[in-house]
Design a binder for these strands. Sequence first.
DNA 1: ACGCCGCCGTAACGTACGGTACGGTACGGT
DNA 2: ACCGTACCGTACCGTACGTTACGGCGGCGT
Lengths: 218, 218
Amino acid sequence: MQPAVEVNENALTERQKDVLDAALALLVEAGDTLTMTSVARRASCSKESLYKWFGDRDGLLTATVQWQAAKVRGVPVDPEAFSLKSLTSGLERFASDWLRVLSGTISVALNRVAVGHAGSDKHDLGAIVLENGPFAMARRLKPLLQLGLDTGLLAFNDTDEAFRTFFGLVVRDVQIRLLLGDRFELTEAAIDRDARRATQQFLALYGVHKTADMATKS
Amino acid sequence: MQPAVEVNENALTERQKDVLDAALALLVEAGDTLTMTSVARRASCSKESLYKWFGDRDGLLTATVQWQAAKVRGVPVDPEAFSLKSLTSGLERFASDWLRVLSGTISVALNRVAVGHAGSDKHDLGAIVLENGPFAMARRLKPLLQLGLDTGLLAFNDTDEAFRTFFGLVVRDVQIRLLLGDRFELTEAAIDRDARRATQQFLALYGVHKTADMATKS
DNA sequence: ACGCCGCCGTAACGTACGGTACGGTACGGT
DNA sequence: ACCGTACCGTACCGTACGTTACGGCGGCGT
């Protein structure tokens, strides 16, 4: 037997996608206490197929995380007519998107299992989530920051440091509190407000001002 | 049988503290895959004693987390002669302390198990860590912020919002990356540098300036 | 028609581990 | 000397679950 060849390729049968969606749903409901039997029952497939397709439990979890990651690919920003206004709206849209994803039940569930498995693992789920979470966010945002730097709207020495500051201003304690199980209501209005606040604070720190900006105080 | 009465009181035998330290060490080494047998062997005690003292596995984990939390109680700040200098140094000391704790192996291990158990649990470990982590930090920092507000050195409407911004500026993506298993070297020098940067950025956002402050760019 | 293949459902196996029971030992009180 | 208490070490039980094996069935090529 050569197990789990499908995972390495991007070739996923519709049937297999359905299975992964079922696993995802169970992951959200029950955390990583999901059993192979429960996945098979939920997806109406046999355990034999699960093992043939994904090798073992770890392979199934890995494939599930990657499957979700593949669905979340965001659209990049287009660097054309660029101004303080477009920079601001780009940052705001980015922040609100990120907060929305972050506070979603799927993201919370996935980060939970990834954190749980991050200690000692072979198919490190943590690395996968890391890659598709913070790192992907950085890759997506850095072109925008670089553009701001090149056009003189922003000023900083290290793009990575600037990104990480923006990350902190956006996420703050939201993610860790959600992961630790804090009941947290993040309404659309709150997300928009936080995105605007984080953007304004970021511009206050790294923007090149000609005029005094508006309220950065909460 | 009335199980685990000891947990409710603060009365912990020296022997029991030793056991909890052993459990803590195992938690750091192996994550929450630690077994009752392994704890008993490491602490050179019988499983029967573990169950008598802590009720069940969950009780042992809970007691372990609380035991560690009890050891971390920090000293509060004294509100006497207050100036921009003391505010700054207070914030910096606070930030560096927090970063040091946060990046320690014990904190990472404890947050890992708490996050893992946060989904569906009875003795919610997540709540305990939340209480002794971010919430304790907030309680410890807010008097300092309030003092800054009262003395006119700071300006904000909502203390909680100000705290959470400071939290974001200090922690950024450090904690989530560590939890997800990112190999991360946080040297003493880096911690001090980050603490100063976060403090300066916070003052730039919420401080009442008479003079232009120093470099907030990285 | 017929055999092959992929898949479902289910039963079975092996094992790891939470939890319990029990024998043995040290010790302090009487 | 005797008993109760506390504890260690270990063997044991029950169960949950990962993993494997097997019987049956519908579709598809020939």
